[in-house]
Nucleic acid binder design. Structure first.
Lengths: 147, 147
DNA sequence: CTTAATGCAAAAGGTTTGCAGATAA
DNA sequence: TTATCTGCAAACCTTTTGCATTAAG
């Protein structure tokens, strides 16, 4: 919970029941949902909400900078409700879980100027990959997974 | 050019004219193409090659670790022919161009253990974002862009 | 009251799949 | 010869769009 709704209201965002529900879903659980998952959760509270509206709303939140699109290797984009503060991602190569982690030091410093090819670099985003505790345990004793 | 074909042969990959062309396209230009772009370039040399085969082939190269899927914010996945050696990406926020850059130092060191949530972290991938020289120039004198 | 958001349904990408025929080893 | 790959076309999934209706401010 981080008062996403309040921030949106302060910014003069026109509020509707659909938008409120979408914002609540995002603000409630700080996991990284796909548009479809957002729609499913939103529909629990507001059954008539349409996918189009969820897509529109997510797009606007991204444009406002309140939510970030996370590019994953899978098919569907995921939405990160923590868009208003810089952070990096820790993703499990096995189950796809994503956790936010805090930057330690400035990653921009890691790219020497002569490696920038004339680019004006403004931000750096780090994705750490590995196995989450559950998947790591499963990998050690594969028998426990299958049967 | 980095002898992708040779590496594939050594690994016992069944070679066909379609696969050869796909591998040559990837190995030839070290840019990051979409599956459709790979298909278009491959079709110049082998007109009857199908999209399905290109998709299948790219999927196999990814499975072999010779090519990496680059997660972008756009719709289509891009394929990085530099999969056999670690590197990071420099992407232009305006035109989407991607360049490979070399890691400077170990980014893994940037994530303190107490921030790992029990994950077994094996790799870190940095995406630097900014503007490429062309887009930066265009941004300074917008009139020059529109007309 | 006016402007903007919603829902529907259809369409537009991008990617995957089943299967008959072709081909590398 | 035989296991594997290819091409086709249709299916699938995610996302976008046009337009009439509805609702916020």
């Amino acid at each position: 919970m981080s008062d996403l709704l309040q921030r949106l209201r302060e910014r003069g965002w026109r509020m509707t029941s659909q938008r409120r529900v979408v914002a609540e879903v995002l603000d409630g659980e700080h996991v990284h949902l796909t548009a479809d998952e957002v729609h499913a959760r939103a529909a629990r509270r507001l059954p008539e909400i349409s996918r189009a509206t969820v897509y529109n709303t997510l797009g606007e939140l991204v444009a406002l900078g309140e939510v970030t699109e996370v590019a994953t290797d899978g098919r569907a984009r995921r939405y990160d409700p923590n868009g208003h503060r810089p952070h990096h991602h820790l993703v499990c190569a096995s189950c796809g879980t994503i956790r936010d982690v805090q930057p330690a030091g400035d990653p921009l410093a890691g790219l020497p100027v002569e490696q920038r090819f004339g680019f004006t670099v403004t931000e750096a985003e780090v994705t750490y990959r590995g196995l989450c505790p559950d998947c790591a345990t499963a990998a050690e004793s594969p028998a426990a997974v299958e049967g």
